[in-house]
């Protein structure tokens, strides 16, 4: 990946904070960055096609839409990790799934409609070949959720 220009960094920093809820959002962003709408749109298309942007869009509060979340940690036989990871991914409620260093080597977050759906899915995963242990870690309080990376 190439080095980003100062303008690209400020554009990405701004865009991570918010997209104006306005008929012409990119024109509003352009005003803030002392440029024009066309430049912002072209630059964003470029950065998007180069793979810097995972997503532009709307982030909902899953609790407020009636979903519940859980973090689960698995201790998986290293030779089975790919199979287990793919099985975990097959559930549409799996939003994050990371292989990590350490005794618990696969961590994922799952969103479900209710306790029943959640425990059914977790039990199916727990029975998966190669899974030695599972921790079910339910959030009781969210102090911070702010995934923004300031580019300098």
């Amino acid at each position: 990946m190439r080095e980003l220009t100062t303008f690209e960094k400020s554009l990405l920093n701004f865009l991570q904070k918010s997209i104006p809820i306005d008929s012409r959002p990119f024109a509003r962003i352009a005003e803030e960055l002392n440029t024009d709408e066309k430049t912002v749109i072209e630059k964003l298309r470029e950065l998007s096609s180069e793979g810097y942007l995972r997503r532009i869009g709307t982030f909902f509060d899953s609790d407020k839409l009636g979903y519940q979340g859980i973090l689960a940690a698995l201790q998986v036989e290293p030779s089975e990790i790919e199979n287990v990871a793919k099985f975990v991914n097959s559930y549409s409620g799996t939003t994050h799934n990371y292989e990590r260093e350490g005794k618990f080597n696969l961590w994922f977050t799952l969103l479900s409609k209710d306790d029943e759906q959640e425990s059914k899915i977790l039990s199916e995963i727990e029975k998966c070949h190669g899974v030695k242990k599972m921790l079910r870690l339910k959030a009781t309080r969210k102090y911070k959720l702010n995934v923004q990376f300031k580019l300098q």
């Binding site: 809820i21 793979g51 942007l53 995972r54 997503r55 709307t58 982030f59 839409l65």
Partner: peptide, 28 residues
């Protein structure tokens, strides 16, 4: 559409409208 999005933001159903970087590519 805009009016309803603003309502969702007020009701905190929407946390944020914005971009997410591929943070590894961005150097993290």
């Amino acid at each position: 559409f805009l009016r309803r999005i603003k309502n969702f933001v007020e009701e905190k159903k929407i946390r944020r409208m914005g971009a997410v970087l591929r943070h590894r590519e961005a150097g993290f």
